[in-house]
Design a protein around this nucleic acid. Structure first.
Lengths: 316, 316
DNA sequence: CTGTTAGCGCCTTCAA
DNA sequence: TTGAAGGCGCTAACAG
């Protein structure tokens, strides 16, 4: 009998109706994610892992991109909530309060990623951008650098970018190393922007010996600019990135960067949400380790010919 | 009165229920996409554009990845159909027939991308992989190359990869140029694989003077391998890619590659689906132009020192 | 354990 | 134009 029913199910091509199921069960088995962009490969890896893990748990991913725009973000969240998502992934910690009230009212679990909070406000799976950037600056300071520049992402509306700038400034301040405005450039996360910024920095009368980039895309642009113009790295300038994209280690020289475990972050964010949906109360604050991967793009500060002002670097 | 109702809507935090709406209206305003992977940045740009266009049209994207596996693909399609998607984006032209019968039974519009059909079977927005690869091989033949190698993607279950191989073989055959098995390598689309393949090819007793890669990821790996080992491109070997990723033009030398308008493809695929949902009958076969971008990674065939067998290339 | 039934919240038709 | 009511296809609670 059961066999005959199942035979008919196949024969007639019956497929259960998700909308009806969602309406009756009050669960869509769908999880939303609003990320800044998919174009730059920064989030692609993490989302890939997130989706895979969600799929294991029987859930599907509804993806939306905000273009680093808060208005878009809230619009998408509203939209996703209307669609009945069972959970939501967000990037960063700066969000319109309306987002959280919306989510709380409908009791939709959410996680922030690529960030760690110190205010205990919202669940997250991420890391400390400020401290990571601080460590990167320290790495260069330890190598004897004094002439710094930074090529940051657009900090307005991007807390990760802003915290990385803070971390760098903090390390430099501790050593009384200045970061003059002409050595600080904000630009969008793309290769041409990175190239332009590094070109401009190196064309200055007194170019920096170390350039800290806000992420790998910018840093890769910088390294490629130097390759294109035969500027020796790290002989003339050291360059650092952030993310450790798959490409980073394959450049010549390899890019010194901060490894971000984006796959693990995606999986853990999914696990958190899935766990919440099971009625459990998983750890709401997961801080992931980021590792400074020192490759060939950073080296000791070169002697500053004609400048006696860089103590301790003359021997290099 | 109307004002008071709206005030209450906001005050009470009322949000319309998408599941109920979907059940009653028989439309989810949701569109699915099953792509091979999000990890490799190949599809990220196109999906980004697809999502943006869908969003304009009031639809959301449900994304699933198959890992180039047909079983995963059909599982995801089944799942998406149950979820009540109003339309579906597929990559390539090789799909389990069950997918189409499922889609047709529920009258779900779909589009294939990254492919063009000659059999008129299914709607698509894409381009001719075979012909594009043929053109690329011709480009190298015209430069005087005779010693070819190809680093292809895994062709099993990947019609795009297979057609690119076909196109190359066709061009070589026309000129009676062999592609010996030791000069043909299939590997996954990642940088380390590209590096390994190119390394192996160039380590042979008689290395090729031209290496055609199945996509930019592989080709970038090849170029980076040569940079790392100081092998002159295009002096000693020419390398070509396929896709024209944002990075391609920024390498030194720039990568000669086939530009694929992935953003346009994503937008047009979305437009097609949206149009179908409006009840229109848009053009079901859209062939996009791909452009051969000749950059510095290809050059004339070098003289084959010690080999008199490469006619027409001695003068270079 | 199986069979029945009352909604889930919205859209859409129909009547007023 | 506005209002009332019957499903949409399923789940979950309940009775048997």
């Amino acid at each position: 009998m059961r066999r005959r029913v199942e035979a008919q199910i196949n024969a007639l091509g019956y497929v259960p109706d998700g909308a009806a199921r969602a309406l009756a069960s009050r669960r869509s088995r769908t999880i939303g994610a609003v990320i800044p962009t998919l174009a730059s490969a920064i989030f692609a890896g993490g989302i890939h892992a997130f989706e895979a893990k969600l799929d294991d748990g029987g859930h599907s991913l509804i993806l939306a991109t905000s273009g680093y725009d808060a208005a878009q973000e809230i619009r998408h969240v509203q939209n996703l909530v209307e669609r009945g998502i069972d959970g939501l992934l967000l990037v960063g910690k700066t969000h319109d309060p309306a987002i959280f009230s919306l989510l709380n009212r409908r009791a939709v679990p959410y996680v922030e990623t690529y960030t760690s909070r110190n205010d205990g406000g919202h669940p997250f799976v991420g890391f400390d951008n400020r401290h990571a950037a601080y460590r990167m600056a320290r790495h260069l300071i330890d190598l004897g650098h004094h002439e710094f520049a930074m090529v940051a992402g657009i900090t307005a509306g991007n807390d990760r970018a802003a915290e990385r700038v803070q971390g760098v400034r903090e390390a430099l301040d501790e050593h009384s190393i200045p970061l003059p405005t002409e050595r600080f450039i904000e630009c969008p996360y793309d290769i041409p922007a990175g190239r332009r910024a590094v070109r401009r920095l190196l064309a200055a009368a007194t170019p920096p010996s170390a350039i800290i980039c806000g992420n790998d895309v910018l840093a890769i642009g910088g390294v490629l600019e130097c390759q294109a113009t035969s500027i020796d790295i790290p002989g003339r300038v050291s360059i650092t990135g952030f993310d450790d994209l798959p490409l980073a280690g394959h450049l010549t020289p390899g890019l010194t960067t901060m490894h971000v475990p984006s796959g693990e972050m995606g999986r853990k964010a999914a696990a958190y949400l899935l766990s919440r949906l099971h009625g459990d109360t998983p750890e709401p604050a997961t801080i992931l380790d980021v590792d400074l991967i020192a490759r060939g793009s950073t080296g000791p500060s070169p002697g500053r010919q004609g400048f006696g002002s860089a103590p301790g670097s003359a021997m290099v």
